[in-house]
Design a protein around this nucleic acid. Sequence first.
DNA 1: GTAGAGGTTGACGTTACGTCAAGGTCAAGG
DNA 2: CCTTGACCTTGACGTAACGTCAACCTCTAC
Lengths: 252, 252
Amino acid sequence: MDWSIQEIAKIAGTTSRTLRHYDDIGLLKPSRTGHNGYRYYDGPALVQLQRILLLRELGLGLPAIADVLDRETDTVKALSSHLEWLAQEQDRLTRQIASVRQTIDTMKGDGKYMAQNMFDGFDHTQYKDEVEERWGKDAYAASDSWWRGMSAEKKQQWKDRVQKLGTDWIVAAQSGVSPDSAEAQDLAQRHVEWLRGIPGTPTAVPGGDIKGYVTGLGEMYVADPRFAANYGGEPGAAFVRDALRVYAEKYL
Amino acid sequence: MDWSIQEIAKIAGTTSRTLRHYDDIGLLKPSRTGHNGYRYYDGPALVQLQRILLLRELGLGLPAIADVLDRETDTVKALSSHLEWLAQEQDRLTRQIASVRQTIDTMKGDGKYMAQNMFDGFDHTQYKDEVEERWGKDAYAASDSWWRGMSAEKKQQWKDRVQKLGTDWIVAAQSGVSPDSAEAQDLAQRHVEWLRGIPGTPTAVPGGDIKGYVTGLGEMYVADPRFAANYGGEPGAAFVRDALRVYAEKYL
DNA sequence: GTAGAGGTTGACGTTACGTCAAGGTCAAGG
DNA sequence: CCTTGACCTTGACGTAACGTCAACCTCTAC
């Protein structure tokens, strides 16, 4: 009372290839093998197969299934831990969906909105690790507490100021004036003043190497496209860098 | 003003291997190649890389990313269709989580509850395709409308009856009596009466091959573990089969 | 005898790289 | 000049779970 490979495949709703695979990896051996090499399966084998397919449908990997079956591991336990993994996956998906949605919204808006939004993603926690690595843990802690200590209104003011500065830079860069023009130097001055407001930067402490910092910052704006995006891409960022360099040479 | 492979890898937060891979598949070529074969990347390449990594983070596959980049395809469109796929994935996950939860609950309960529950999953739509394939479309339609036409109370009564029958079978099988005993034959009679209540089966129509149907049904209970589970697994199902065969020979 | 249906064992393809392995290149130091 | 060490190269295997040929054998039926 047994079945050929295609017969059980049909009964169980799978394919003969899958059954051969399970045989190969030792997950489910046929109950009998003909002298011709044909695989035959009986009732208990079918039951095992159904269990395997159930667990697979629940998302378990084949090794995990083998574990449950051979070692008579507690199925409920295996499923519970699997459930946790599923919940995490769902969380990840949810976040990803939100992220994609926001990106779409951002792209539907114009460049200014985009720059603003990109900066939004920048203001604190997201780049925690990077900030810590580059400027040390204390710097991050200081920066973070400074930002979090602001009222919502202050935060909004700060953001508006940043956005205004960014768009003014973009406009100036696109207007074709040179980096050492009065307009550009004006912006550079506003930029440095803005920087002085950020604690933890050399511009904010007396005796800091302001000049080196400002010129280095300009280089980074060009080098790192995440920042460059705030200034109209690479050409815009290059304009900002040049203007800052001129300003630093002249006044700092 | 360009960087070595490891340098941009660090800047962009990825690995040199990934960059080589992108070069291999033509997704991102280095801006310059040294006479020694070294890869060098410039600013625009970095920007491209950042776009790639962004899209990748949003879950797009590399071919899809290539599509967006080369063919200047509308990024928003690509992301929107991707969003749909994400939503479907989330749906699937949600259903899967519910399924795993129910399975766990079922397994925590005892065998009776399990049998009941497995039957629950059986009553109509789930096995639509299979029912249609085995017994034809009309049979399914008849069966479905019959079931859906019942009031909730009737449905519950029906389920209770099925469950009672199932557990009685299991008890009888485990008690060690023989399939031709009076108790077993009693159950067989109840079983056949129950079958007569199901429209579309040969037991319900005059002149149908009741005997063949009932014995064949018994075979199926053993052969198909999804049914066998309702009768205490394979041994229980075999008991049912044998009792039904005896009953059919005697009375049908 | 010969289809035709069904069985067998390889072995490659799939995704996006990680991970050796073997060997060339470059800058710095003895 | 030679060595050392860091960094670069190409090539190739491994991953999860089979799908999909390919080449060849077996059984049943006409």
